[in-house]
Design a binder for these strands. Structure first.
Length: 465
DNA sequence: ATGTGC
């Protein structure tokens, strides 16, 4: 793949038919290793209605149809499409950060007990299980419509939590009627659970502050204890993606759409299939936000028991979602897959107290390594988007062959990180060596002008899905 | 990511 360097952290893939726009990858040469992911950037550039460019973030890697770390926007009024592959199977997978009124030294003598309680109370791993047992479909429909707002309404959290959530805790236009019976069935038993893979709940400490003023505005200070929760919409989101890809795969011909890869199945935003997917996707997004709200509440109870400390929500933001947004007067369907929205300072969707500083962006690192808090910048790029994490360099299978779960756990424990896993196999699949260097990804993200660094967090204890 | 694979 021919890459033309345009700036220190910006590469261009020239437009050639059938591409409708060029490809633009924000990264360093070292981070761009996979040709497969670049081919996917090219494939996405052929989608009907795509505008500006098919973008790649610094953590770009191969995914289903679209690359992970990909951003693509289509012009809704010009026949622009929506594609489930541009969101991913884990709809509205995202990150929530809570800040404790507690310093790491104060927690140290109680860390083991805290981790043991979290170990016993945070549902995780594949299959059913969750902190909230729903009474049935009617209650799930409410949750799908109102997301974290419903959880708070039912006593799981406080009103201030919602001010610090993207979309105030719920995406509009969720349509539970577009969620199939199988998805509903899978969703009923998993409300308030982490899941598996790279999902985690970490007790962390602020290890470095890059911008005192912004960190203070976000409620963060050096040495402070935080909790990061990374999870998504579980089997419900997965089933919705599966169901709607199938529908669109069949519908594409009727709309005269041809794509270079069937995994790019899509339909015009303004079509019955497009609207149906967006309605179901929004429902899954709300499931995901309620999920993080409920896990945050379970964590608050654990902290209350062990330390008496309070946990305030810093922010909750998704990195797998399509949104209808207005940019330069046009209504666009912005797909962010493994990419985080990063609103600039003074954007109307920011809560007033954060508006001068830009949106908090939460980047989970690999297990046992650092995580970051970033902020949106005035002259953001790729429709105000940035990276979402380290990005894989090895498949799960490859990773598991390199190191045993037991070895990895012992190594982390030797570093003083308390590990509460759900399976040793799961641990080995998430070995840090299977990922890009998070520090390099952040350096490229800030260097490319996608965001700026606010703070670096290190793990004290890991509850692993 | 996922009741992990057609």
């Amino acid at each position: 793949m021919e890459l033309v360097q345009e700036a220190p952290f910006r590469f261009r893939i020239e437009r050639r038919p059938p591409m409708r726009v060029p490809g633009v990858v924000f990264a360093s040469r070292d981070l761009i290793a996979e040709d497969q992911a670049l081919q996917q950037v090219v494939n996405v550039a052929t989608l009907p209605g795509i505008v500006e460019a098919s973008y790649g973030m610094p953590d770009l890697h191969w995914g289903y149809g679209f690359p992970i770390g990909g951003v693509a926007a289509t012009d809704v009024r010009a026949g622009g499409v929506v594609s489930p592959g541009g969101v991913g199977f884990d709809i509205s997978c995202g990150v929530r950060l809570l800040a404790a009124d507690l310093q790491r030294e104060e927690l140290a003598p109680r860390l083991t007990r805290l981790m043991d309680i979290l170990d016993a109370t945070i549902p995780r791993g594949a299959g059913p299980g969750g902190v909230w047992k729903l009474s049935g479909r009617a209650q799930l429909d409410e949750l799908l419509r109102k997301g974290a707002r419903y959880a708070v309404e039912q006593g799981h959290g406080v009103a201030r939590d919602l001010e610090r959530c993207e979309d105030q805790g719920a995406v509009a236009d969720a349509d539970p009627d577009q969620v199939g019976d199988r998805a509903i069935k899978r969703g009923l038993g998993q409300v308030g659970s982490l899941g598996s893979g790279n999902h985690f709940l970490e007790v962390q400490a602020v290890e470095q502050v890059y911008d005192e003023k912004v960190a203070a505005a976000f409620g963060l200070r050096l040495g402070q204890v935080c909790v990061m929760i990374h999870c998504g919409s579980r089997g419900l989101g997965h089933q919705i993606c599966t169901d709607h890809v199938r529908v669109m795969d069949k519908a594409m011909r009727r709309y005269g759409i041809s794509v270079p890869d069937r995994q790019l199945a899509c339909a015009p935003v303004e079509s019955p299939e497009g609207r149906a997917y967006l309605g179901a996707m929004a429902a899954a997004a709300n499931y995901s936000r309620a999920n993080r709200q409920l896990l945050a509440e379970a964590t608050r109870r654990a902290f209350q028991k062990v330390t008496g400390a309070r946990l305030d929500l810093v922010y909750d933001v998704s990195h797998n979602l399509a949104k209808l947004e207005r940019h330069d007067g046009r209504l666009l369907c912005v797909h962010r897959k493994g990419a985080t929205r990063a609103l600039p300072p003074h954007h109307p969707d920011l809560p007033p107290d954060l508006a001068p500083f830009g949106q908090p962006v939460l980047i989970p690192g690999t297990m046992g390594t650092a995580s970051y808090v970033l902020a949106g910048v005035p002259d953001g790029k790729a429709f105000h988007s940035t990276c979402h994490g380290a990005g894989r360099t090895q498949s799960r299978h490859q990773a598991a062959r390199m190191v045993s779960g037991r070895e990895l756990r012992d190594r982390l424990e030797a570093q003083g990180i308390a590990v509460r896993g759900s399976s040793l196999r799961g641990l080995s699949e998430e070995a840090p060596t299977a990922y890009k260097d998070i520090d390099a990804v952040i350096a490229a993200s800030t260097g490319a002008g996608l965001c700026r660094a606010v703070a670096r967090l290190v793990p004290l204890g890991v509850v692993k899905g």
